[in-house]
Design a protein around this nucleic acid. Structure first.
Lengths: 239, 239
DNA sequence: TTGACACTGATTGTTAACAATCGTTGGATC
DNA sequence: GATCCAACGATTGTTAACAATCAGTGTCAA
């Protein structure tokens, strides 16, 4: 992780020997992030092999890595499935985010480069575009990535990794418990966060993030989770 | 992660098929935590195979998992080595801990079960014992585990996982940049943290943790890192 | 009709042999 | 004597065949 500077979000610089390796992880990661892969979806090894055109070893390595991040669950002798968080795990993820993100944004409000503001407003603009165009998938992805951008603004690779995992698992949770017809990151709360940061108001920035996360959480109905069993894998069509 | 409740810290309940699987990871994890495995130490597959008495597959899976947590670095066609964080990574780890742990302890000060206090004071007692007996290895392990206990007190599995990774990497960093003859978690600062928690003083608890972490950080000399090349693997002697 | 049981098919887990790569050693040349 | 080059040895990366396990299905009996 030292040599590769880890690009903004999408494709990795395919260095030296491994043209895939992380690519499978990235693809599945994105698919989960965009809620194209529903929880409990079976991730068959052979299917993934032919989809990505790689050997079984690569696929198994990828699945192992994904399982170590709570995105995929490996059931012994059963195979790999997209993780299906229960209520307890969902709570843990939100509590963790509520613990980490407010001080993170507070810090950004206290000191940030000027580029950040333009970066974030450009991002929000894209969110708005996706919203008006009703591009559900794109919107979900951008909503999650906004929080990633905040983490990236700290230039702290460790925090980015942590937040990426948390945001992705949040996507799973929202897909499971979310009340349909309600967007994951509602309204213009992202804009409010950006405003507080740009005004260098740490207390308000912190509060905005907190209420934003609580808002998302309140959009979940923990009683009944939509245990839609599985899904076809043409969602991973183009590499 | 749902069925296995993940035991307190040490041996896992060896369920069903995999009597090892996580055991190798745990062993190497502990060895790094206790600074018995120095950075840059070569982790040869064949050696690990005969040490743990398992096939190469298990070892490779373990190494992959460890690499995904930044404990081990996989160099293509070269093998696995104990990670050797540079100054930047060290900074990231400390910044992340400074961001996460203060609010975590603040929360504990606001609400905690009574068992926590007895648990923590028992832990600190063991630290003192190890210190007076000059059991360096034991002391290092307990010092790190204290912070893990704090995370476990939140009953949040996600936070525990995050903190475990951060604490372990801190062990690596202290081993690399630490001024020898200076303990990693100095004096009785843990006791101060416990006191603030027991007195339900969130502000002071937060401050204590912050200065504690800063204290550890100040005990590092970022200029020259002791790049001791490698080490023998009899440190993993008994399974 | 319903229940249990055994068989079958498919999928995963494991092992072993093979191929590729890199560091090293030895030698030849300047 | 130093430097460059080549072959060697060892270690990792990959593939393929084999073994084990589980889910589903069909049959038989109650």
């Amino acid at each position: 992780m030292a040599p590769s500077k880890q690009a903004t979000h999408a494709q990795e610089t395919k260095f030296s020997s491994g043209p895939d390796e992380k690519l499978i992880v990235e693809q599945i990661y994105n698919a989960v992030m965009e809620q194209r892969l529903a929880p409990n979806t079976k991730l068959s090894e052979s299917r993934l092999c032919e989809i990505f055109g790689v050997g079984r070893m690569r696929v198994r390595r990828a699945l192992l890595l994904l399982s170590s991040q709570g995105i995929v669950e490996l059931k012994s002798n059963r195979g790999a499935f997209v993780a299906c968080p229960d209520q307890g795990e969902a709570n843990d993820v939100f509590e963790a985010r509520l613990l980490i993100e407010p001080p993170l944004v507070r810090q950004l409000a206290l000191s940030h480069s000027d580029d950040l503001l333009t970066l974030l407003s450009a991002h929000i603009a894209r969110e708005d575009t996706a919203r008006t165009k009703q591009e559900r998938t794109e919107m979900i992805r951008l909503s999650g990535e906004f929080h990633l951008r905040l983490a990236e603004a700290t230039r702290n690779q460790v925090l980015v990794r942590i937040l990426r995992e948390l945001v992705t698992r949040t996507s799973l949770i929202v897909g499971l418990f979310g009340i349909s017809g309600q967007s994951s990151c509602p309204d213009n709360e992202h804009m409010e966060i950006l405003r507080a940061i740009s005004q260098r108001d740490p207390a308000r920035a912190e509060q905005q993030v907190k209420s934003h996360l609580e808002h998302i959480r309140s959009g979940l109905s923990m009683d009944e989770r939509k245990g839609r069993p599985d899904d076809l894998l043409n969602v991973l069509g183009r590499s």
